[in-house]
Design a protein around this nucleic acid. Sequence first.
RNA 1: UCCCCGAUAGCUCAAUGGUAGAGCAACCGGCUGUUAACCGGUUUGUUGUAGGUUCGAGUCCUACUCGGGGAGCCA
Length: 463
Amino acid sequence: MQRLSVAQARKEESIGKEALIQGWVRTRRDSKGGFSFLEINDGSCLNNVQVIADQNLSNYESDIKKLGTGACVGVVGTVEKSPAKGQATEVRAQSITVYGVSDPETYPIQKKGATFEFLRTIAHLRPRTNTFGAIARVRNCVCKSIHDFFQEQGFLYIHPPIITASDCEGAGQMFKVTTLDLEKPPRQGPSIDFTKDFFGRPAFLTVSGQLEAETLACAMGKVYTFGPTFRAENSNTARHLAEFWMVEPEMAFYDLEDNMTLAEAFIKRIITDALTRCEEDMKFFTERIDKEILSRLEGILKSEFLRLSYTEAVDVLQKSGQTFEFPVSWGADLQSEHERFLTEVHFKKPVILFNYPRTIKPFYMRVNDDGKTVRAMDVLVPGVGEIIGGSQREERLEVLEERMKETGLDPKGYWWYLDLRRYGTVPHSGFGLGLERTILFLTGMANIRDVIPFPRTPGSAEF
RNA sequence: UCCCCGAUAGCUCAAUGGUAGAGCAACCGGCUGUUAACCGGUUUGUUGUAGGUUCGAGUCCUACUCGGGGAGCCA
């Protein structure tokens, strides 16, 4: 017996096929004509396939009439042209196997809508809803796009360590990794003796694979990482996770302009693929989540990202006449409200800001000839704000060492990073893109906890 | 972490300090090639936790827990 996914069974070309369809019951409607309609979903697509279960089925009264939302079944039957509106095909059942019943008294998912807050408390069951099924498929699509885009351009997929000893860039709080007994850790004087720890030194979960990616870029040319990243910062917002996925390309012989060009092409490729490969799901997001999603994404594809230096951006903001909660002044970091104004109100399209003051950016960014700014770039998009952060890296040994001292870092701890500049240094660039923020941007979902199956946030690691 | 808001039936929400309700779901019945089906009926509560004020607290006060919105930090 041929197995058909619901997505296949819904297609007109499947008419006439005898097949096995397996999935979960979304609803059951009984007809006093002596049969029932079952809506079956298996995650292969947004919509369900309608099954006609006739009373002649041996288990019609005993099993079928009792099927509730959430039950799992296997249906052997014939795909037929549906006489009614709403679907091209339907399946006339010859037999139905009930794999697992679902008690309607206690099953928490109902036919009518539930809030995302409630669904978060049942993260193990929410993939069975339309919204979370659609998110899972779009997320998968984006991941494939990421690999396709870089692979087609000759990038090498590399794997930086998840456990790291370098407290890199001082960006955010890190999770400690230890096998020491926290009840009575070994001590050397007043402080904990980490030489007794598993790695013989303090170790952490990575906050970025950038420094390690640079070592491979300085040998292989164009590389990218794609994996989990951890930040122990106590951030409670709709845009932050303690564990999230990040893509970090790193390219030798790329300057900042090359970097910006790549970032723009990358984002456009992800959008294009989502619109073409997840058409049904994207339409769903437009209808049910954010009415402007499709038009916004299509608009972005047509427009060229605006490139604006930090200095110019400060000028635009100061002359805008807009009153901000936080004042704009050269040298201060831009606030969320400033970034949103630029991309959502003033320019109404993605904006790439570059050449930030050196005092507000990390040590590894290349210092410009003016001595005051560094070759940093942030890509801002409407609806989400910063989605990409990147830079051209400082390739000059003396400047890099000076910058490390300036930001209070000990160059000795970064001896291997400095070696890259000591032996055959090369101009190079890279950026990081947060996967979950990209999904927010694509789907119009409001909370980052709803675009990852099992969100990790301060005080929350259930499931 | 800071500021603001919230927590009442399985879900979504009502209830001038005076006996806790509705819609949906569920269950029973009716009707129907139905499709968030429809119509009638039935059931559902230690009002987040712990204290306090009061003759009387879902309602006022305090603390805590959890959640939401905003901010900071960032991807």
